[in-house]
């Protein structure tokens, strides 16, 4: 009897804990599943200005909660994803976009890696050309043994 009571108490406590957890997720009154998916998708593309390596969807910072609420309200007012993003960019700068737009000030960001790749490729091509030029004349003169030795690298 005592054991039963104890397990009942434990079960009740666990239930309460579950309810408290569910509260922390702050459910929003979405009108359908599509709207909820859109909201999840949108908040996952935006960056929390406070804890800067988290998305608005993930972050538990107060400002992230406020901005999520604001995004929900804007969705209720029929704003498009692009309008909502612009709303946040106007206030918090392009920093909030995880995907920065291709603009003049982000050219280096977008094409910098390509530039470095091209420089590297040019260096490789130059080296190969130089080697083949310096190796070819000696090839005819070289004995097979000498060739083998030179092949080590």
């Amino acid at each position: 009897m005592r054991a039963l009571l104890r397990s009942l108490l434990l079960a009740t406590l666990l239930l309460c804990a579950g309810a408290a957890l569910a509260q922390a997720i702050e459910p929003l009154p979405f009108k359908d599943h599509a709207e909820e998916v859109r909201y999840q998708h949108l908040t996952a593309q935006l960056r929390c200005p406070m804890c800067q390596n988290e998305t608005l969807a993930d972050s538990n910072a107060p400002i992230a909660r406020d901005l999520r609420n604001q995004i929900f309200q804007l969705m209720q007012h029929g704003q498009t994803d692009a309008q909502i993003k612009q709303y946040l960019v106007d206030r918090y700068s392009e920093f909030v976009l995880y995907d920065p737009p291709v603009a003049r000030n982000t050219w280096l960001l977008w094409f910098g890696p390509l530039l470095i790749l091209l420089v590297g490729a040019a260096a490789v091509v130059a080296t190969i050309r130089k080697r083949s030029r310096s190796v070819t004349p000696s090839m005819s003169a070289a004995t097979p043994t000498a060739l083998d030795e030179g092949d080590d690298w």
């Binding site: 200005p49 406070m50 107060p62 400002i63 406020d66 901005l67 604001q70 206030r91 918090y92 700068s93």
Partner: peptide, 12 residues
Amino acid sequence: SGQTAIDFGVYA
């Protein structure tokens, strides 16, 4: 509420 602060771009 912190609502107006969003217009100012306040985050911290």
